[in-house]
Design a protein around this nucleic acid. Sequence first.
RNA 1: GCAUCCGUAGCUCAAUUGGAUAGAGCAGCUGGCUUCGAACCAGCAGGUUGGGGGUUCGAGUCCCUCCGGAUGCGCCA
Length: 610
Amino acid sequence: MTTADPIALIDQSLRTAIHAAFGEGFEDVDPILREAQKREFGDWQANVAMGLGKRLGKPPREVAEAILEHVDFGEVVTESSIAGPGFVNLRLAPSAVAKALLAMDTKDLGVIKEASDRTVAIDMVSVNVAKRMHVGHLRSAVIGDAIARTLERRGRTVIRQNHLGDWGTPIALVLTQLRANGINLDHVTLEDLDTAYREAQANAKADRRGAEATNRFFAGSHRLAELEAQNSGADEVVAAAKQDLVRLQAGDPKLHDDWRKMIDCTLDAVQETIDLLGVRMRRDSDKGESFYNSQLSGVVDSFLDAGKAREDDGAIVVDFPERDRPMIIRKRDGGFLYATTDLAAIRHRTHDLAADRILYIVDIRQRDHFRDVFEASRMLGWDKCQDGTAAELNHLGFGTVLGANGKPLKTRSGTNASLMSLIEEAIRRGTDAVVTRSQDASAPTHGLSEQDLAGIGRAVGIAAIKYADLSSDASKDYVFDMDRMVAFEGDTGPYLLYAHARICSLLDRAGGVPEGANFQPTDPAEKDLGLHLLGYAKVVHQVSDSLEPHHLCGYLHRLAGLFATFYQQCSVLKVEDSDIRASRLRLCDLVRRVLSDGLDLLGMAAPKRM
RNA sequence: GCAUCCGUAGCUCAAUUGGAUAGAGCAGCUGGCUUCGAACCAGCAGGUUGGGGGUUCGAGUCCCUCCGGAUGCGCCA
């Protein structure tokens, strides 16, 4: 932001006034400047007087008066008043709004880079080999990608890592099962794998021996623990699989080959889904559990050597000072656990990737797990990069996806709903709507090729799904209601796309923004729209700090709403005064770019027509 | 049993992190297309923020308590 930014100017003016009014010790008091909640109060408000009143032992209104006596807003503020307990309400000069819009009308739209340009590692998607993706993966992918794009926008280098579940007894069991089924792994499909996975599970379940002991081998889907009942008890099958695992680990060529093919098959399918969703993620940065396997005994040794772990009933555990439950990092039988792998992963991300921020986009039910792992990693200083910079470790936990019945989303057969089928359904319904509307001869999409319409329909359907996921607090459960999200009315992704498309046609008809156009808000709707535009950078900064994309959704929805009001109220193409026409066109163009940029940060494409 | 989180309009969700009269969307009702795209707009109605107490100029937000719900809890991932 430049010095033309009226908010920065007001902020500085108030700081100066506070210092002048109260002297020593009040050099740098935050005026707590906020957008006014209601237009009748003003455009912006300062809430500092109440807090200062307490500190000074004076009535807040008196404090507010003293501040206003010393303040010099120059030309920026046309009206200031004190209201309620001591709110300072400010109304901005239209010329100041115009100047500020001019200043933000750059490529970056006012968004500034973060202080650190170092790498951020984001642990997201995290699929299980040999299993289909389900809605839990959707959340991780969609939220993770939105966060990643926002951080990239702020100058960060982001590594999106798929922490694959590609190792351990469950994987060996599937391999064993595939061999039993006589599957040729050269032509294996994800269906084959998924079937083998379930069969291995079912076989084990059918054998009652050792039921309780083997309850764990299928205990959920890797990072995204599923809720289905997991049972197994096949000692024989398990024993065979364990032998296979040992041979695999020893480098048996045939087994290793099969294992690789199984992973490739799974990841090809994952990539297809990821691409269709428009999530920017490639296999080159993936790191699965197998990658860390060889490091795990070293991890345990490190904790033992540092005196941070102890033996307990044959297992190796890490104790926490303020918790009674320790964390197990090696089982009695010598095997390692999820926690051990995650410790190795943190070390890899700080030491090898030099990431100073590590984010986990993982189901919120794993909150305790990550708290343990983070705390343990700090015990050994593994949260620090080689140069000593401490990395910020964050678990961004998301809630469960529920069906219309308020229970975790399932298909009719009771399995977790396949992600691909949901995406395809959304795209189909988006395309249907687009095609139907294009039949109308007056529709801007009339006469477009089938391919173009399909592309638009895809954008509409994907935006519907993503917006539904991103627009409320990620940590809460949310109800996946296809009918509601593809209604394309109200607070939805397509509503934002629609606003964008309308502006595009408007600018198209006008032949672009006229040369020398200047902002000059005259109508209240224009000023409201302009004022809201000025808050874009702030909300982007907020999202990259708080990791809460729903604030950006809220911002964009309001922007689209204010535009719709403006559009209804103010003629653009037909207004006589050519300066006002030019001004409105430029305003439209800025709205279009902010919408497009914001949607891009959320991972949504904004077609020119729809 | 212990721990964590949640409870806001009929439904689905917000609330700038302690600020003014708690806001949106859907559903309902009333208006607005021979006029820049009606996937829209303007308006009406809908609330004891689960109950009760406390902290202070001020509480949906912080503390205590009760009620209701979800999740997690040593050898699964």
